[in-house]
Design a protein around this nucleic acid. Sequence first.
DNA 1: TGTATTCTTGCAGTGACTGCATTCTTTCAC
DNA 2: GTGAAAGAATGCAGTCACTGCAAGAATACA
Lengths: 197, 197
Amino acid sequence: MAAPPGLRERKKLQRRKLIEDTALELFARDGFDATTVETIAAACDIAPRTFFSYFPTKDDLVLADYADRLARILDAFAARPANEPAWQALQGSFEAIAADYESEADRLRARFAIMATAPSVRARSLELQLGWEFALVERLSERDDVVDDTVAQLLAGTALAIMRAALRQWFTSGTDSHPPELMRRGFVLAGNGFDHL
Amino acid sequence: MAAPPGLRERKKLQRRKLIEDTALELFARDGFDATTVETIAAACDIAPRTFFSYFPTKDDLVLADYADRLARILDAFAARPANEPAWQALQGSFEAIAADYESEADRLRARFAIMATAPSVRARSLELQLGWEFALVERLSERDDVVDDTVAQLLAGTALAIMRAALRQWFTSGTDSHPPELMRRGFVLAGNGFDHL
DNA sequence: TGTATTCTTGCAGTGACTGCATTCTTTCAC
DNA sequence: GTGAAAGAATGCAGTCACTGCAAGAATACA
């Protein structure tokens, strides 16, 4: 019951993907604000009301992959050797998803463009990332080598900051940069400490 | 023309403060979502339309002090000795505003409560803080000791992460903690580097 | 095939926010 | 002081995201 999850389930996923792709195209063509939910619905041949049973908000549609992304980070983190230092484990996990990012450059670049013009999406993105931070804090707190909650928050917060910086760098700099490298560089810098800067 | 800035100007500031105070009270009493702009306007004896000439959005009303706050950070940063290392200058600046925070505990606690229940405010808060980050990156990039843009983003991003962690700590932990100390602690930890954690 | 379950849809409504035109208040030159 | 110019407050009509609800359609399952 995992391979063919029934017609209903299949249709739902299919439709979800259709909405996402269609909307992203419209956003790219006409802009995020200029594209109404009604327009998206019409382009997908669904009722406007139906849109909201697939995505909670228009903003969230743009960030639809964030949930999976978080799951990937947490999985990667959990898969790290138990005796590895916390910071190193974080670095490894984030480098792993950096590789994911690289393989989806186009989609992410489109999103970056949307965020540049739609403050609400940018804001929501940051809020979701704050959720990642909390999830990481939780995992970090379970470790033996991270006793202090403040330390856990600092580690997670810095890791996310590194990620944002790396992605920003990736998008603004030329095409010759690679997320995993940028991410690693950030982790190394923060790992060594900022005191000598 | 700076001391008595004219009746018009005075009334405007007065009214702005009235709206802010009234709204914050209503939010505390009835909740952020349950308090409509119309209600706020009625309580202030102004037309609903007028509200929006004082605050761009309902969210922004809650975060009305963020602009001043940023100005304070930038001022503090600019006032730092020129030969001081970048990270140390950041630390000094953030400890300075941490002192501000401590003297406004009540107001900030009220805001913290609002953010806990109103995701849009939380999101907007993070977005405004991203603006602080950019402003700091700009200032950092002007310095001789920060040549690399990635480094500037890392420094600023981490500083903001430290600030958030410190404030979170302040609000969740007992009343015996002090923002400047919490802030300093974060800066020291990040200053020393996370590699040994 | 019939029935329960799970969407999809339409409808009516709320609430934030905007543009525009109007009216009122403050300012300022005379 | 008076009158015009500038600025702010207001009212109105409208857009758009988003919601609850109830009816209708599709799917699952016995």
